[in-house]
């Protein structure tokens, strides 16, 4: 009973998070402007981190937690670097 409830809900959650990731990828590819793409990346990494947490629960191992933590760290650094580049980079003449 418990195993069925958990496996079905985790499966549904993983599908929802994967759909959310594809929405974010669409926004990354489509733009229209650079800031929209960075925003898409931000959403993408948050969804990926949540997906890893659910994968960890489905596998019953805490190993995936570390992967989620690293994605959160690197995603933050990456999006801040890109946003900083937009703030400083090309448009100043």
């Amino acid at each position: 009973m418990s195993a069925a409830i958990l496996s079905w809900s985790l499966w549904a959650a993983q599908i929802m998070l994967a759909l959310g990731m594809s929405c974010a990828v669409f926004r990354m590819l489509r733009g229209p402007r650079a800031q929209d793409r960075v925003l898409g990346l931000d959403t993408l990494y948050i969804n990926a981190m949540l997906l890893l947490l659910t994968v960890g629960m489905a596998s019953g191992r805490t190993l995936y937690f570390e992967a989620a933590l690293i994605i959160a760290l690197l995603g933050f650094v990456g999006t801040v670097a890109l946003a900083k580049f937009l703030l400083r980079g090309e448009v100043i003449e």
């Binding site: 195993a3 959650a13 929802m16 998070l17 969804n47 629960m57």
Partner: peptide
Amino acid sequence: AAELPVWVAILTAALVLLGAALALVGSI
């Protein structure tokens, strides 16, 4: 997971589904 009490399973499932749905709505 089969040995977990049912209420833990239901609570976990509800929270996971809520969180995933919110993330999906945000992405939409």
